[in-house]
Every structure is written in structure tokens, then in C-alpha cells.
Amino acid sequence: MRLAFMGTPDFAVPALRALHQAGHEIAAVYSQPPRPAGRGQALRASPVQREAEQLGLPVRTPARVRRDAAEHAAFRDLGLDAAVVAAYGLILPAEMLHAPRRGCLNIHASLLPRWRGAAPIQAAILAGDSESGVTIMQMDEGLDTGPMLLAGQVPITAATTAQALHDALAPLGASLILRALEEAPMARPQPEAGVTTASRLSRDHGRLDWTQSAEALDRRIRAMTPWPGAWTLSDGTVLKVLGATPMPGLRPDVAPGSILPGQDGLWIACGSGVLRIDRLQLPGRAALAAADFLRGHRFAPDHRLG
């Protein structure tokens, strides 16, 4: 088929690669414009743009498309059979949604209608869901509200981080979009029950509230890994928490955030239960196992985090 591909982050790269390898004609790849990155803040192309250029595909990087009549016309003039959208990050107007013969198909990283919106991977872990997945959806003008074509599931375990779930869902989305284009399955409306929305993440989503349960804090750490990262304060210094383990059955009689004395490692009292911090990092320093961190960093007996 003659396609356009629209995506920006790493999640979209396996789908672009799979469509190209399957022999589809990709008339244009759309991605968000290069952004400042790194210490020097030099402009860096998105992962999708870099992959498209490696494959020798034409790339377009408009800063906006919603009200740009020239972009609408250029998209229409591509003469597409379909457009494939995967975490593009820009809202498509009706003029673009309906331009391809088969419309626009979205690779969405959740089992719709659960976790519509910007951060479905993190939301599923944070909520304690037992599974996630990918839904191939026929796009309409709502926020992830279009009818569903195909879906595939991936389990979420007690050790699943957002990075691990991302790495499982990205190739699943690639395989499902190939099937959707080949099989043209019947579209099914999304159920009205069970709709949830995953809001866009900010750095503050990673802040640990020690009045929560140890299990909830563990989910937050895993959901925010690698970005925006889970963190707490220690005497005003940001302490990044990279891995932790809830310790069941413990009910310390101290304030939440207190470091428990006499424990092997860094054990923290929570609103309910105890969380053992396994790996952490200070600003500008290397990440360390908790045992290594404690060799060079002493806490006062009454020290509290947060």
C-alpha cells in the first residue's frame, strides 16, 4: 500500500521499520521537529526521523498541522491508501484524518478503552493493572475514541518497569499494524464502560509520597522508570530512586519517610509497610546499589526522606 507514517519517539520505530521491510510504499514520514537536547542543547532529530533518514525515506517535520491549510493540501496530494500513526504527538484535523482512502490507523499502547491519552504505559503500571497491550484503532476526531481493529495483550508483573513494558509493546504494535493492513478486520466500537484517561507526565509525577503504601510507591518507581524518574528529597537534595522492593509484613511505629535503623540496606517506613531501596542516585553522580551508597553516605538516626 501507499502509506504515510507519523510518529516521533522510540516506540514508533519498530512499526516504521516493519512497514518498510514488508514492502509498503512509504510516501512520507511525519515526525515532530528536532528539539534541543543534551548539555549543549544542540538540535536533535527524533528517533523516527533518524530511522526514516537511514531508510532513505522522505521526512516532514511541521511544528503544527491542525490549522495549516498548506499541510492539509500536501498530505491530501500524497494520494495515500492509509496513514499509520504511532505516538506522533500532534493532533490531526479532520482534513487529514479523512484524506487517505482507508483513513488513519493508530497504534495505541493500551487495551482501549482503558488508558486513552498521553501516558498509557505508565498509567497501567501505576494503577496496578495485571496486563497491558496494543490496540490498532481507526482514528476519529476524539482523544483515542475511534473504533478498534485489532488488539494484543502483554502481562504486567511485579517487576515490570515502564521501560520493559515499552520494549514489549513496541514490537507488538509493529506486528499488529501489519496484520491490520493485510487483513482489513471489521472495526468494533469501543465499549462505553471502562474508559480511563492517562494524563501527560511531568517531573512532579515522579515525586515519592512516603505516606502512601510500600506497594503503591513501588509501582510509582517502576512506572516512572526511566522518565521522569522517581525521586525524593534528603535534606533538600534530590535523591533519585531507581529500584526498590516492598517488604511485606512489617509495620514500623515511626513517621513515614523515616530510615529504619539496623537494617541491611536502605529500608524506609511508608504510610503502610516498608520499602527497601535497592538502587539510587545523587545529582551528577553514578547510580549505585544501596549498599554501596551507604558506604559513603551516612544518615542521622532520626533522618526522614521527603
Rank of each mutant, 00 (worst) to 15 (best):
A45E: 15
L305H: 05
L280K: 05
V13F: 11
G262E: 00
D278C: 05
I136Y: 01
A184Q: 15
R2S: 07
V84N: 04
L55A: 04
G265F: 04
G152T: 04
P9V: 08
P14S: 05
P9S: 12
L111H: 00
V134I: 08
S31N: 08
P283F: 03
L143M: 13
E71K: 04
H166A: 02
I136F: 02
T232N: 07
P261W: 12
T211H: 12
R114M: 03
A151V: 05
G103L: 11
A86H: 05
G243W: 13
I125W: 10
G103F: 12
L172Q: 03
Y30K: 14
I91K: 14
L92E: 01
G296R: 06
V254D: 04
P120T: 13
R116V: 07
H303D: 15
I221H: 03
W115Y: 14
Y88S: 09
R203G: 14
R179N: 06
W210V: 09
V238H: 11
A290E: 07
D167Y: 00
V238E: 15
L208A: 10
F75H: 08
L266A: 07
H20D: 10
A118M: 13
H108E: 01
V238P: 09
M137L: 14
R64A: 12
A124N: 03
R219P: 01
G56R: 02
A18N: 00
V154S: 09
A184S: 14
A230E: 09
R179L: 11
A269P: 05
L57Y: 08
G262Y: 00
P62M: 03
L105R: 06
L294F: 00
R2D: 08
L80T: 02
G56H: 03
D278K: 08
C104Q: 03
A74F: 05
P34E: 05
E215Y: 08
A255W: 01
T61G: 08
A287V: 11
A70M: 10
G194M: 04
